[in-house]
Design a protein around this nucleic acid. Sequence first.
DNA 1: AATTGAATCAACCGCCTCCGT
DNA 2: CACGGAGGCGGTTGATTCAAT
Length: 322
Amino acid sequence: MGRAPCCDKANVKKGPWSTEEDSKLREYIEKYGTGGNWIALPQKAGLQRCGKSCRLRWLNYLRPNIKHGEFTDEEDRIICSLFASIGSRWSIIAAQLPGRTDNDIKNYWNTKLKKKLMAMSMTSEPHRKPPPFPSSHHTPSVSFPCLSSLYKDCTTYQDPTRSFTAFEPMSSVQADLLNNGNTTLATNSSLIHTPEALVNYMQYYPMKENFLMFGSESSCTSSDGSSGHISFGREMKQENMSHFQGFCATNGYEDNHNFMLNPGTNNGGKNVNQWAEKQREYNLENDLEDFKRLISSSGNNCCNNNFIDENKTQEKVMYFYY
DNA sequence: AATTGAATCAACCGCCTCCGT
DNA sequence: CACGGAGGCGGTTGATTCAAT
Protein backbone atom coordinates (compact mmCIF):
# COMPACT_ATOMS: atom_id res chain seq x y z
CA MET A 1 0.00 0.00 0.00
CA GLY A 2 1.49 3.26 -1.10
CA ARG A 3 1.44 6.53 0.74
CA ALA A 4 -1.75 8.51 0.87
CA PRO A 5 -2.04 11.14 -1.82
CA CYS A 6 -1.67 14.72 -0.68
CA CYS A 7 -5.07 15.59 -2.11
CA ASP A 8 -8.12 14.07 -3.70
CA LYS A 9 -6.79 13.50 -7.17
CA ALA A 10 -10.23 12.95 -8.58
CA ASN A 11 -11.48 16.37 -7.60
CA VAL A 12 -8.53 18.55 -8.46
CA LYS A 13 -7.87 20.26 -11.72
CA LYS A 14 -4.60 19.62 -13.48
CA GLY A 15 -2.80 21.27 -16.32
CA PRO A 16 -2.19 24.91 -17.14
CA TRP A 17 -3.55 27.55 -14.86
CA SER A 18 -6.21 29.94 -16.12
CA THR A 19 -6.02 33.66 -15.46
CA GLU A 20 -8.99 33.34 -13.14
CA GLU A 21 -7.21 30.74 -11.07
CA ASP A 22 -4.12 32.88 -10.99
CA SER A 23 -6.15 35.82 -9.78
CA LYS A 24 -7.84 33.80 -7.07
CA LEU A 25 -4.57 32.44 -5.80
CA ARG A 26 -2.76 35.75 -5.92
CA GLU A 27 -5.57 37.63 -4.22
CA TYR A 28 -5.91 35.05 -1.51
CA ILE A 29 -2.23 34.93 -0.68
CA GLU A 30 -1.84 38.69 -0.79
CA LYS A 31 -4.73 38.99 1.61
CA TYR A 32 -4.18 36.08 3.97
CA GLY A 33 -0.76 34.69 3.20
CA THR A 34 -0.22 30.99 2.82
CA GLY A 35 -1.09 30.32 6.41
CA GLY A 36 1.74 27.86 6.52
CA ASN A 37 -0.51 25.23 5.05
CA TRP A 38 -0.54 24.76 1.33
CA ILE A 39 -2.71 21.67 1.53
CA ALA A 40 -5.59 23.59 3.04
CA LEU A 41 -5.07 26.70 0.95
CA PRO A 42 -6.83 25.77 -2.30
CA GLN A 43 -10.07 25.02 -0.54
CA LYS A 44 -9.95 28.29 1.34
CA ALA A 45 -9.09 30.17 -1.82
CA GLY A 46 -11.85 28.48 -3.77
CA LEU A 47 -9.53 26.63 -6.07
CA GLN A 48 -9.92 23.11 -7.30
CA ARG A 49 -6.23 22.52 -7.23
CA CYS A 50 -3.79 20.43 -5.31
CA GLY A 51 -1.97 22.35 -2.60
CA LYS A 52 1.33 21.45 -4.13
CA SER A 53 0.18 22.77 -7.44
CA CYS A 54 -0.78 26.07 -5.78
CA ARG A 55 2.56 26.29 -4.10
CA LEU A 56 4.39 25.66 -7.34
CA ARG A 57 2.29 28.17 -9.24
CA TRP A 58 2.89 30.81 -6.62
CA LEU A 59 6.60 30.22 -6.23
CA ASN A 60 7.40 29.84 -9.89
CA TYR A 61 5.06 32.32 -11.46
CA LEU A 62 2.85 34.49 -9.32
CA ARG A 63 4.92 35.67 -6.42
CA PRO A 64 6.27 39.21 -6.63
CA ASN A 65 9.65 40.05 -8.12
CA ILE A 66 9.81 36.99 -10.29
CA LYS A 67 12.15 37.67 -13.15
CA HIS A 68 11.25 36.30 -16.52
CA GLY A 69 13.08 36.52 -19.79
CA GLU A 70 16.64 36.23 -20.90
CA PHE A 71 19.37 35.35 -18.49
CA THR A 72 22.24 37.77 -18.38
CA ASP A 73 25.87 36.83 -18.89
CA GLU A 74 26.46 37.38 -15.23
CA GLU A 75 23.65 34.99 -14.37
CA ASP A 76 25.12 32.48 -16.80
CA ARG A 77 28.44 32.77 -15.09
CA ILE A 78 26.94 32.26 -11.66
CA ILE A 79 24.96 29.25 -12.79
CA CYS A 80 28.02 27.69 -14.39
CA SER A 81 30.12 28.31 -11.38
CA LEU A 82 27.62 26.90 -8.94
CA PHE A 83 26.75 23.97 -11.15
CA ALA A 84 30.41 23.12 -11.27
CA SER A 85 30.61 23.42 -7.53
CA ILE A 86 27.47 21.71 -6.36
CA GLY A 87 25.83 20.08 -9.33
CA SER A 88 22.11 20.21 -9.92
CA ARG A 89 21.10 21.76 -6.63
CA TRP A 90 18.78 24.11 -8.41
CA SER A 91 17.12 25.58 -5.37
CA ILE A 92 20.47 26.57 -3.95
CA ILE A 93 21.58 28.01 -7.24
CA ALA A 94 18.29 29.87 -7.49
CA ALA A 95 18.90 31.36 -4.08
CA GLN A 96 21.92 33.13 -5.53
CA LEU A 97 19.92 34.62 -8.38
CA PRO A 98 17.24 36.97 -7.09
CA GLY A 99 14.01 36.68 -8.99
CA ARG A 100 14.91 33.41 -10.64
CA THR A 101 13.25 30.17 -9.69
CA ASP A 102 14.82 26.78 -9.47
CA ASN A 103 12.51 25.56 -12.18
CA ASP A 104 13.56 28.39 -14.45
CA ILE A 105 17.21 27.74 -13.92
CA LYS A 106 16.79 24.04 -14.35
CA ASN A 107 14.97 24.52 -17.63
CA TYR A 108 17.45 27.10 -18.76
CA TRP A 109 20.36 24.86 -18.02
CA ASN A 110 18.85 21.80 -19.64
CA THR A 111 17.62 23.50 -22.76
CA LYS A 112 19.95 26.37 -23.44
CA LEU A 113 22.93 26.97 -21.29
CA LYS A 114 24.40 23.51 -21.63
CA LYS A 115 24.19 23.72 -25.39
CA LYS A 116 25.40 27.27 -25.42
CA LEU A 117 28.49 26.29 -23.51
CA MET A 118 29.15 23.35 -25.73
CA ALA A 119 28.82 25.50 -28.82
CA MET A 120 31.09 28.10 -27.30
CA SER A 121 33.71 25.51 -26.59
CA MET A 122 33.57 23.94 -30.02
CA THR A 123 33.67 27.28 -31.75
CA SER A 124 36.55 28.65 -29.81
CA GLU A 125 38.62 25.50 -29.86
CA PRO A 126 37.31 23.10 -32.49
CA HIS A 127 40.63 21.32 -32.61
CA ARG A 128 40.76 20.75 -28.91
CA LYS A 129 41.67 17.28 -27.85
CA PRO A 130 41.10 15.70 -24.50
CA PRO A 131 43.69 16.94 -22.08
CA PRO A 132 46.75 14.79 -22.46
CA PHE A 133 47.90 12.89 -19.51
CA PRO A 134 50.34 15.17 -17.83
CA SER A 135 53.95 14.31 -17.73
CA SER A 136 56.92 15.82 -16.05
CA HIS A 137 57.20 18.46 -18.74
CA HIS A 138 53.55 19.35 -18.37
CA THR A 139 53.66 21.00 -15.04
CA PRO A 140 50.78 23.36 -14.46
CA SER A 141 51.67 26.94 -14.90
CA VAL A 142 49.47 28.18 -12.11
CA SER A 143 50.72 27.77 -8.60
CA PHE A 144 50.22 24.14 -8.02
CA PRO A 145 53.59 22.67 -7.25
CA CYS A 146 52.05 19.66 -5.60
CA LEU A 147 50.80 18.43 -8.94
CA SER A 148 54.20 17.62 -10.24
CA SER A 149 54.71 15.11 -7.51
CA LEU A 150 51.22 13.94 -8.02
CA TYR A 151 51.89 13.15 -11.62
CA LYS A 152 54.75 10.94 -10.74
CA ASP A 153 52.34 8.70 -8.97
CA CYS A 154 50.17 8.28 -11.98
CA THR A 155 52.15 5.53 -13.56
CA THR A 156 49.25 3.20 -14.01
CA TYR A 157 47.36 5.46 -16.30
CA GLN A 158 46.51 3.59 -19.46
CA ASP A 159 43.56 5.16 -21.21
CA PRO A 160 43.51 8.92 -21.56
CA THR A 161 40.12 8.98 -23.23
CA ARG A 162 37.56 8.31 -20.56
CA SER A 163 36.55 7.31 -17.09
CA PHE A 164 37.89 7.99 -13.71
CA THR A 165 40.13 5.10 -13.16
CA ALA A 166 42.55 5.52 -10.36
CA PHE A 167 43.51 9.13 -9.90
CA GLU A 168 45.04 10.14 -13.10
CA PRO A 169 42.21 11.44 -15.22
CA MET A 170 41.16 13.85 -12.55
CA SER A 171 44.61 15.16 -12.17
CA SER A 172 44.82 15.70 -15.87
CA VAL A 173 41.56 17.58 -15.75
CA GLN A 174 42.97 19.58 -12.98
CA ALA A 175 46.09 20.33 -14.89
CA ASP A 176 44.15 21.19 -17.98
CA LEU A 177 41.89 23.51 -16.12
CA LEU A 178 44.77 25.20 -14.54
CA ASN A 179 46.38 25.55 -17.91
CA ASN A 180 43.27 26.94 -19.41
CA GLY A 181 44.71 30.40 -19.38
CA ASN A 182 41.91 31.66 -17.24
CA THR A 183 43.06 33.65 -14.31
CA THR A 184 39.92 33.19 -12.29
CA LEU A 185 40.79 29.58 -11.79
CA ALA A 186 43.53 30.47 -9.45
CA THR A 187 41.65 32.91 -7.34
CA ASN A 188 38.11 31.76 -6.89
CA SER A 189 36.70 29.08 -4.73
CA SER A 190 35.47 26.98 -7.57
CA LEU A 191 38.11 25.34 -9.63
CA ILE A 192 35.86 25.00 -12.61
CA HIS A 193 34.71 28.50 -12.62
CA THR A 194 34.35 29.52 -16.18
CA PRO A 195 32.06 28.26 -18.89
CA GLU A 196 35.02 27.23 -20.97
CA ALA A 197 36.55 25.27 -18.17
CA LEU A 198 33.29 23.60 -17.35
CA VAL A 199 32.66 22.63 -20.93
CA ASN A 200 36.13 21.33 -21.31
CA TYR A 201 35.67 19.25 -18.25
CA MET A 202 32.26 17.96 -19.19
CA GLN A 203 33.28 17.20 -22.71
CA TYR A 204 36.07 14.88 -21.90
CA TYR A 205 35.41 13.83 -18.38
CA PRO A 206 31.68 13.65 -17.87
CA MET A 207 30.57 14.27 -14.36
CA LYS A 208 30.25 11.22 -12.28
CA GLU A 209 27.74 10.87 -9.59
CA ASN A 210 29.10 11.18 -6.12
CA PHE A 211 32.33 12.69 -7.06
CA LEU A 212 33.74 15.28 -4.81
CA MET A 213 36.96 17.12 -4.66
CA PHE A 214 38.36 18.73 -1.60
CA GLY A 215 41.10 21.18 -1.34
CA SER A 216 42.16 24.44 -2.71
CA GLU A 217 43.83 25.57 -5.82
CA SER A 218 45.48 28.21 -3.82
CA SER A 219 47.17 28.50 -0.51
CA CYS A 220 45.84 26.30 2.22
CA THR A 221 46.56 25.49 5.74
CA SER A 222 48.27 22.23 6.26
CA SER A 223 48.06 21.40 9.86
CA ASP A 224 44.46 20.88 10.79
CA GLY A 225 42.56 20.30 7.62
CA SER A 226 40.46 23.34 8.16
CA SER A 227 41.41 24.86 4.89
CA GLY A 228 40.01 22.14 2.75
CA HIS A 229 36.89 23.20 1.03
CA ILE A 230 34.60 21.80 -1.50
CA SER A 231 35.80 22.83 -4.87
CA PHE A 232 33.88 20.68 -7.22
CA GLY A 233 31.52 17.79 -7.40
CA ARG A 234 28.54 16.51 -5.60
CA GLU A 235 27.58 15.74 -2.13
CA MET A 236 28.32 12.46 -0.60
CA LYS A 237 26.72 10.96 2.37
CA GLN A 238 28.70 10.15 5.40
CA GLU A 239 27.67 6.56 5.41
CA ASN A 240 29.22 6.21 1.99
CA MET A 241 32.48 7.76 2.91
CA SER A 242 34.06 4.52 3.89
CA HIS A 243 33.66 3.34 0.32
CA PHE A 244 35.69 6.16 -1.02
CA GLN A 245 39.11 5.84 -2.33
CA GLY A 246 41.12 8.81 -3.22
CA PHE A 247 44.28 10.59 -2.67
CA CYS A 248 45.73 13.61 -1.19
CA ALA A 249 48.41 15.63 -2.79
CA THR A 250 50.29 18.06 -0.71
CA ASN A 251 53.73 19.44 -0.64
CA GLY A 252 54.46 16.96 2.04
CA TYR A 253 52.83 13.59 1.99
CA GLU A 254 53.50 13.10 5.63
CA ASP A 255 50.50 15.22 6.52
CA ASN A 256 47.67 13.32 8.02
CA HIS A 257 44.72 15.62 8.43
CA ASN A 258 41.51 14.64 9.96
CA PHE A 259 39.81 14.76 6.61
CA MET A 260 42.55 13.31 4.55
CA LEU A 261 43.50 9.98 3.23
CA ASN A 262 46.74 8.39 4.03
CA PRO A 263 49.10 8.61 1.14
CA GLY A 264 48.76 5.68 -1.18
CA THR A 265 51.25 2.94 -1.08
CA ASN A 266 52.63 1.78 -4.32
CA ASN A 267 51.26 -1.64 -4.92
CA GLY A 268 52.66 -3.05 -8.09
CA GLY A 269 52.55 0.30 -9.76
CA LYS A 270 49.10 1.11 -8.46
CA ASN A 271 48.21 3.59 -5.83
CA VAL A 272 46.25 2.06 -3.07
CA ASN A 273 45.01 4.85 -0.94
CA GLN A 274 42.70 4.25 1.92
CA TRP A 275 40.32 6.50 3.69
CA ALA A 276 42.11 7.07 6.89
CA GLU A 277 40.68 9.56 9.26
CA LYS A 278 37.64 11.46 10.30
CA GLN A 279 35.18 12.14 7.55
CA ARG A 280 33.03 14.85 8.94
CA GLU A 281 34.50 18.10 7.87
CA TYR A 282 33.19 18.66 4.43
CA ASN A 283 30.08 16.65 4.25
CA LEU A 284 27.47 18.86 2.62
CA GLU A 285 24.71 17.10 4.42
CA ASN A 286 26.10 18.01 7.77
CA ASP A 287 27.66 21.33 7.05
CA LEU A 288 25.01 23.31 5.38
CA GLU A 289 26.16 26.50 6.99
CA ASP A 290 29.71 26.04 5.84
CA PHE A 291 28.37 25.17 2.49
CA LYS A 292 26.33 28.33 2.33
CA ARG A 293 29.35 30.32 3.29
CA LEU A 294 31.21 28.64 0.52
CA ILE A 295 28.53 29.57 -1.93
CA SER A 296 28.36 33.10 -0.71
CA SER A 297 32.09 33.39 -1.01
CA SER A 298 32.02 32.26 -4.60
CA GLY A 299 33.40 35.04 -6.69
CA ASN A 300 35.53 36.39 -3.90
CA ASN A 301 39.16 35.80 -3.61
CA CYS A 302 39.53 32.53 -1.81
CA CYS A 303 41.97 34.00 0.61
CA ASN A 304 39.18 36.09 2.01
CA ASN A 305 36.86 33.31 2.91
CA ASN A 306 36.75 31.20 5.98
CA PHE A 307 38.18 28.14 4.41
CA ILE A 308 41.55 29.41 3.52
CA ASP A 309 44.41 30.38 5.65
CA GLU A 310 46.22 32.91 3.58
CA ASN A 311 49.33 32.66 5.68
CA LYS A 312 50.00 29.11 4.75
CA THR A 313 51.59 28.28 1.49
CA GLN A 314 51.30 24.58 1.33
CA GLU A 315 48.96 23.44 -1.36
CA LYS A 316 46.86 20.43 -1.57
CA VAL A 317 44.10 18.90 -3.48
CA MET A 318 42.10 15.83 -2.72
CA TYR A 319 39.91 13.80 -4.97
CA PHE A 320 37.49 11.18 -3.89
CA TYR A 321 35.39 8.94 -5.93
CA TYR A 322 33.62 5.66 -5.77
C1' DA B 1 0.47 26.72 -46.81
C1' DA B 2 1.20 22.24 -44.72
C1' DT B 3 3.97 19.16 -42.33
C1' DT B 4 7.25 17.68 -39.16
C1' DG B 5 10.82 17.70 -35.91
C1' DA B 6 13.09 20.45 -32.35
C1' DA B 7 12.95 23.52 -28.61
C1' DT B 8 10.79 25.45 -24.73
C1' DC B 9 8.87 25.60 -20.28
C1' DA B 10 4.93 25.02 -17.08
C1' DA B 11 3.42 21.53 -14.45
C1' DC B 12 3.40 16.97 -12.48
C1' DC B 13 5.37 12.99 -9.98
C1' DG B 14 7.51 10.74 -6.52
C1' DC B 15 11.01 10.74 -3.22
C1' DC B 16 13.24 12.80 0.73
C1' DT B 17 13.52 15.70 4.79
C1' DC B 18 11.69 18.07 8.51
C1' DC B 19 8.84 18.60 12.27
C1' DG B 20 5.11 17.89 15.40
C1' DT B 21 2.91 14.39 18.10
C1' DC C 1 12.04 6.54 19.08
C1' DA C 2 8.46 5.83 15.65
C1' DC C 3 5.12 7.58 12.83
C1' DG C 4 2.60 10.51 9.73
C1' DG C 5 1.71 14.78 7.36
C1' DA C 6 3.38 18.73 4.90
C1' DG C 7 6.90 21.10 2.50
C1' DG C 8 10.62 21.02 -0.60
C1' DC C 9 13.24 19.35 -4.25
C1' DG C 10 15.00 17.42 -8.67
C1' DG C 11 13.79 14.66 -12.61
C1' DT C 12 10.61 14.08 -16.11
C1' DT C 13 6.63 14.79 -19.04
C1' DG C 14 3.79 16.68 -22.40
C1' DA C 15 1.45 20.62 -24.51
C1' DT C 16 2.66 24.43 -27.05
C1' DT C 17 5.51 27.19 -29.95
C1' DC C 18 9.01 27.77 -33.28
C1' DA C 19 11.83 26.76 -37.24
C1' DA C 20 13.05 24.23 -41.15
C1' DT C 21 11.71 21.94 -45.23
